[in-house]
Amino acid sequence: MTDRRETWLFLLPGLALLVVGFIFPIARMLVLSVQGPDGHTVDQFARFFQDTFYPSILWRTVYLSALITAICAAIGFPLAYIMARSGPRVRLWLVIMVILPLMTSVVVRTFGWMVLLSRSGLIASTLRDFGLVGRSFQLMHTETAIVLGMVQVLLPFMVLSLLGVIIRLDPRLEEAARTMGCSFLQTMRRVVLPLAAPGLLAGSILVFTLSASSFVTPALLGGPRIEVLAGSIYKNVTQTLDWNFAAAQAVILFAGIALLLIPYLRLGRRAHG
């Protein structure tokens, strides 16, 4: 009996935070999204889908998030593998290196990218010097810029999720695979990758949800013309003060992410067996 009470006591702070900071606002948001001048209405949702403008923002949000997740996985897996198989000292330095972007302010980081990506920036001028691109070329305010900036800041989530799983894999399994005729790359594909699937899954979920809901980096690097849903919500809350429409968009984003995640989580349950 006491055990049970203590369990509840331990749960209380987290539970309270969840209710006050998450469930209550989400409920408010749901209510707001269907609130009209005269009672309940789905007008806000109808407005979202009435022309292609908002659906295209939703689509951009989803595919950019998917692209960012894929790139993070492609870069993160080899990196996490190397980290897992190196000595503790090297690993520590690599971890510090990977999480360094998280330690800098988003503004500083983004201005760094601006210096690199703008029309007079390092990348554009170098490409221009080689005659590869025209005078008007720039990377700022493109989707590429958003992807670059987001991959940089979200990579640690992918790498650390993968590292936690790969580091617990017995290296003998890889050696056994080698003695059974696998080349190094086949060993990665047939042994390490399937066994690292839970980490890949966790990392993907983190990266995808974080990139779908981020708005500072996309707003600064993508500019006003390349909008993502979170940015649009922000604009409606702070500039047009249309809270009901903002709430409707938030509900759509929330539902969209949830819809995408459910099959993913199913996959995860199967991977855990």
Partner: peptide, 30 residues
């Protein structure tokens, strides 16, 4: 030559069975 190019088989102290495969798939793997 790397291990995969040698005509050998090795049995490990920890057995090193591949946990994501069934017994038959493990035996078929080489």
């Amino acid at each position: 030559l790397p291990p995969e190019k040698r005509d050998i088989a090795m049995m490990f102290q920890s057995y090193a069975l591949l946990p994501h495969m069934s017994v038959a798939e493990n035996v078929r793997f080489p």
